[in-house]
């Protein structure tokens, strides 16, 4: 398993830094006992609307794909980025497959525990030139590109 990180449009292998992980439940039950934790692990059945606390102290939030078919963490990632303005790393763990990477990146993931080849993963992010809908990656949606193109013409 490698850790890949997305930065400045490149998806590259990263050194596995030492993170002290804590689950959301344990941290909430006793924050003092986990004062040194740097990575928060949130299971995918946690409604983030209920997480009314400051997460900015964590450098990594780990979200889970127990199987690639379970898409709850996509919503969690978007909420962390778009509603809770979390700017640290959001890391995908679990069944993280090549053909889901671009969806993950669009939802705000920028760390991936990925078993396949790194080059293949980066190629997967380059398959589509643009997207119709806004998401957490800040990409200009097609409707805005159209308006910009019409104004430029």
């Amino acid at each position: 398993m490698k850790l890949l990180k997305l930065a400045h449009g490149r998806l590259l292998p990263a050194l596995e830094e030492a993170q002290e992980e804590v689950s959301l439940e344990d941290w909430r039950a006793n924050p003092q006992a986990h004062a040194g934790a740097t990575a928060l692990v949130i299971s995918n059945d946690v409604p983030l609307a209920d997480v009314r606390c400051d997460l900015s102290g964590f450098s990594v939030i780990v979200l889970d794909f127990p199987t690639f078919k379970d898409g709850r963490a996509y919503s969690q990632a978007r909420l962390l980025r778009e509603r809770y303005a979390y700017t640290g790393e959001i890391r995908a763990r679990g069944e993280v497959l090549r053909d889901q990477l671009s969806f993950m990146a669009r939802c705000g993931f920028d760390g991936f525990e990925f078993a396949g080849a790194a080059g293949d993963a980066e190629a997967a992010l380059e398959e589509f030139s643009f997207a119709y809908q806004p998401a957490a990656d800040g990409a200009l949606p097609v409707c805005r590109r159209r308006i910009a193109a019409a104004e430029a013409a």
Partner: peptide, 10 residues
């Protein structure tokens, strides 16, 4: 809007 929606494909 729904085509390749990144949040709602799974």
């Amino acid at each position: 809007w729904s085509t390749f929606h990144p949040e709602f494909s799974f």
